[in-house]
Design a protein around this nucleic acid. Structure first.
Lengths: 158, 158
DNA sequence: TATTGTTATACTCTATAACTATA
DNA sequence: TATAGTTATAGAGTATAACAATA
């Protein structure tokens, strides 16, 4: 497999040797770079399914919590409920998610995946598994510890 | 310091115990969660300086590479040159960045920080250092290895 | 009064393609 | 022809505030 060389222009002016200075040694910056790289790799892997990483998380949360409300979903995803409206509108319109008013509280919806939604979720999960295999290749024996650290960061930062 | 309890409503329906299912065990998902938490913490710390993490990276890259062109800057930041235009327009308008046509190639600009830009960069750097201290508290002795893994991820994912 | 979900609105960040002025 | 930067335009994703329906 020949790896394509994309931007290595070795080029005019300062293009060849840009200095990153203190950015190199900051966890925050490197965390962002790693996340962007992983995000792009996953988007690329799953582009033919047509769902973004964000919508995949939504589908998974609904699958794992059938009957969940939009507000609870937003809380879980760390987004405002008003941000859920257009996302869910799209998923419902495309027949992936089913919404029904809850009998117990007629203000809220109970969300569930349709069979088509379940199929899409399954296809995205297959992409995620391939993606994780790629990540594992890079992580090697550091995986377990790395995951622990990521969870600590998410949990312990205000 | 009393920690404010924000969204822990322990509440109606499924709000209390949302299951994350396979998301829990995926590096990609946890990487995103950790990055978002770190990003939010840094944004909060630096809110009074008024620069976003992204613009801070730009300021740092210019400081480290005086005379850099907009295209080279975009390459370093992983963004298209057309995305640099509005960002730099703002930084120039606010007197933080100075642009001068390069004598050697009159198509390109040479970018540099103004004294005000340098002052802003310094203030943001102070925020970054406080942020890194907070991160170090969470990372503990895992820091070195964690950084290595982040760099591997950024470098080795297509 | 409080909460669920929607609406109206706006902001940030980003990209693609076509353009200009140089090279 | 090719490159540096701009413009026009668009899209994704997100938030705040006000609102109607229901609790």
């Amino acid at each position: 497999m020949a790896r394509k060389r994309r931007k290595t222009k070795a080029a005019p002016g300062s293009r060849a040797a840009v200095k990153f200075g203190p950015l190199e040694n900051w966890v925050g910056f490197n965390l962002r770079m790693a996340q962007e790289a992983a995000f792009a790799a996953f988007s690329h892997l799953s582009r033919e399914v047509g769902e973004s990483p964000g919508r995949f998380a939504i589908l998974t949360l609904i699958a794992e919590n059938p009957g969940i409300s939009q507000s609870a979903l937003g809380d879980a995803a760390g987004r405002d409920k008003s941000s859920m409206t257009p996302v869910l509108e799209g998923l419902v319109r495309r027949g992936l998610v089913q919404r029904a008013r809850a009998d117990s509280d007629r203000r809220s919806y109970r969300l569930a995946l349709t069979p088509a939604g379940e199929a899409t979720r399954a296809r995205m999960t297959a992409c995620a598994k391939r993606h994780e295999k790629n990540l594992d290749r890079v992580l090697g024996r550091d995986r377990t510890r790395f995951m622990q650290v990521l969870k600590r960061l998410a949990a312990e930062l205000d």
